[in-house]
Every structure is written in C-alpha cells, then in structure tokens.
Design a protein around this nucleic acid. Structure first.
Lengths: 208, 208
DNA sequence: ATTATCTATAGATCTATAGATAATGC
DNA sequence: ATTATCTATAGATCTATAGATAATGC
C-alpha cells in the first residue's frame, strides 16, 4: 500500500468525529454519520472507541489542549512592555480563533454549559490564570502609576478582549449576511476585525 | 377554582418547553422532560402541539419577536444626537440581554447555525437593518465632518457593540469562576460590565 | 357534544454487541 | 495468533398515536 492509503480507520473515524461533534454538538452528532463520513462500517466505530461517549472524550481532550495553547499564546511575552505585550497577545489569540473557528461555539456549548466537565477543566487552569492576572495587574498598576496608561482593571479588560475576539466566530453566520458586502471576503474582514479589536483595547487603556 | 390554579396545561407545557429548549437546545430537549416539568402526562404535549417540532416552533416564534424588540431598542432614539443615541442604544441592548440571558446562546445555536431557519429570519429583518445602518452611517459621517468624532465604520462598530454586549451572556459560566470574586455579585458585575462596554465604544469614537 | 386527560403501546431512531469472516504481522 | 472488518440484530431511548375515560360548557 502507498503511504496515502495508509491512513488507518481509527484515525479516519477520529477526524470524522471531530467534524461531526464540532458542528453538531454531542446531542446532535450521530455515530452513523461519523462512520459514513469516515467511510467505514458503523461497527468499526465501536470496535475502536467502544462508545459514542468515549469517542467524544477523545475529541474533547484535543479541544482542551488546543484551548490551553490558545490561552498561553494570548498571554503574550512577559518580557515585553505591557502595551506591546497586550497588542501581541490579542493578535495571537485572534489568530488562534482564525485557525480553529469551530472551537469557540463547541467549547461554550459542550464544556461550559456542563458543570461536570467545566469544573474538571477549571481545576487545571485556574491557578495559572490567577497568576497571569496578578502579573498583568501589577504591571498595569505600575504603568498607570508612571502615567503611561489609564488605571485599568485586568479581569474586565480580559473579558473585553475575549468578547471582541471570540464573538465574531461564534456569530459569523449571523454577521455575514447582516453586514452584507463588507464581509464579501472573509480573510480581509478577519484582518480588519483583528486590527479593530486591538484599536479598541488600545484606546481604552491609553491616557487621553 | 382560584385564578392561581387556572393556568392551563397548554400554557404550562409552553413554559416548560421554553426552559427545556433554551437550556438544552432542540436536540438535547426531551418531550418527556417537558411534560414532567409542566406536571402533565406526556400525551398532553402531543394533544396540544402535535409534534416536538411544532412545539419548538412556538418557542422559536417567541424568541424571534423578543430579538426583534431587542434590535429595535438597540437602535435608540433617532432624534437624539449620535453620541447620546449610541450610549442609549448600547445600554438598552444590554438591559435586554439581562432580561433574557438565555436567549443569545439559544439564538446563536438554534437559528444561526441552521441555514433554513436563518434565511427565513434574515428576510424579515434585512431591509430594516440596512436602513438603520445607512441612517447611522450618514449621521456618523456628518459628525466626523464637524470634527465631533472620529471617522467610523458603522458595521464594524455594531459588531464591536454586539460582541461586548452579548458575549458575557453566552460565556457567563466560563467568566464566573475565572474572574473569581469579581463576580461575587452578578447584578453588580452586570452593571459594571454595561458601563465598561459604553466606555469602550465612547473611547473608540471620541476624537483624541 | 366538545374538550381535556390518562394508560398503554406502537413506531422510529440510535447506540451497542455478537459472531462470523477476512487481513496482517511474526 | 492477532488485529481488522462485515453483517445482522439486540437493546435502549424517544416520539407519537390509539382508544378509553373524565371533565366541562352550553
């Protein structure tokens, strides 16, 4: 067999499952559809992953590690000056959204709205998020003290950044037709949107 | 019977269905759960609404009219000066979110991700949204001409406002633990959040 | 006489498994 | 000998309906 044909059924099922779960959610996903997409019989799915739930958890694990990478990227470089660091973090975070446009909706629906899953995730990231916030806040306080920026509340600022960066991907289907020709080219729109988000946050913190 | 007991089964089912569909979505909703919540036998649900789908469409109609009201409120008073009008519109929109916190997620998931439902809704609101945008844009251009505000692109500004106002409700369960004590009191947080969103948009358009 | 409600069950749809058969790696 | 795959079907879960019975408004 050539290398190209060598993609295992196990892998094909995983990829099909990712697409199915990310677009339809756990409840809406069908194991039969996954098997069809993967081009294998339905029984194979159970052979490799036993249950729909276990297959879902494999996808879940993938998304959680992607989200962690995104969070890390969004933290920017601690050695940069605060304002540059923020610009950089916002841009990186936005780029991660572009690379994984289906993740936000999936994540908000399947993890956050299920207390058992969410508390599990939360335990893993809580401490390092708190550290990150404390770090940023002290830098922000120092910069404000020096008169470089407005006095800002970091948690509030982060919520603003997340709102601006994530919402367009959760609501893209809504935005697209309403905005009309402005969104004719998705790539151009996303570049403009990224710049706009940075502009908004910069104007919020720069002294006037 | 007293007035209090007089709530019809038909109405009880509708209310239970609203809660079920809004929290679990169409796929996750169970007609049995709805009947249990309503305190009637399962057969009653089919007696009044025939199918799960038809019951869902009743709820859908309610949410669509609520969303329309929200949009109208968000447009603010056309007779006000632009800056005041925007402040007012943002605040009204946010208040509508507070009053209907489950709607954004439901709307984004159940309507926007289903092309057939979305195109139906879109046809109804497209024209009056376009009018609204054109109106705002010409006012914004005039104000920019007079040097009162920055030159702004209205569709982009609206996306920013929607992102900021809607995201906290889609992601509240995520925000709550991450932000920790800041969100100890939901009402206070939401008031602060509303003020912050207005501040962000104002700083974006005011000349510096 | 019409409307509302209940019990019991059919029907439809998915997930999961059993058991036989084919393919593969030592 | 183990791993992969297929067919056929069991099992579980929901939605929907049939048909009998009770409540209600003229």
């Amino acid at each position: 067999m050539t290398e190209i044909e060598k993609i295992s059924s196990e892998q094909l099922i995983l990829e099909a499952a990712e697409q199915e779960f990310l677009t339809k959610g756990y409840d809406g996903a069908r194991t039969i559809s996954i098997a069809q997409k993967a081009g294998v019989t339905h029984a194979m799915l159970h052979y490799y992953y036993r249950t729909k739930r276990q297959l879902f958890e494999c996808i879940l694990a993938k998304t959680i590690s992607t989200v962690k990478e995104t969070m890390l990227a969004a933290m920017g470089d601690p050695d940069m000056p605060l304002v540059e660091r923020l610009k950089d973090g916002i841009a990186s975070h936005f780029d991660h959204m572009v690379a994984n446009p289906l993740l936000p909706r999936f994540f908000l629906n399947e993890i956050i709205s299920r207390p058992e899953l969410y508390s599990l995730l939360y335990e893993r990231v809580a401490s390092f998020i708190r550290e990150f916030f404390a770090d940023l806040q002290s830098e922000a306080d120092a910069a404000a003290e020096r008169g470089e920026i407005e006095k800002i509340d970091i948690p509030m600022l982060i919520i603003s950044i997340m709102s601006l960066n994530i919402f367009p991907f959760v609501a893209y289907h809504f935005i697209e037709p309403v905005m009309g020709t402005i969104i004719a080219d998705r790539e151009i729109f996303l570049e403009e949107r990224k710049a706009e988000n940075i502009e908004l946050i910069m104007r919020r913190i720069i002294k006037h």
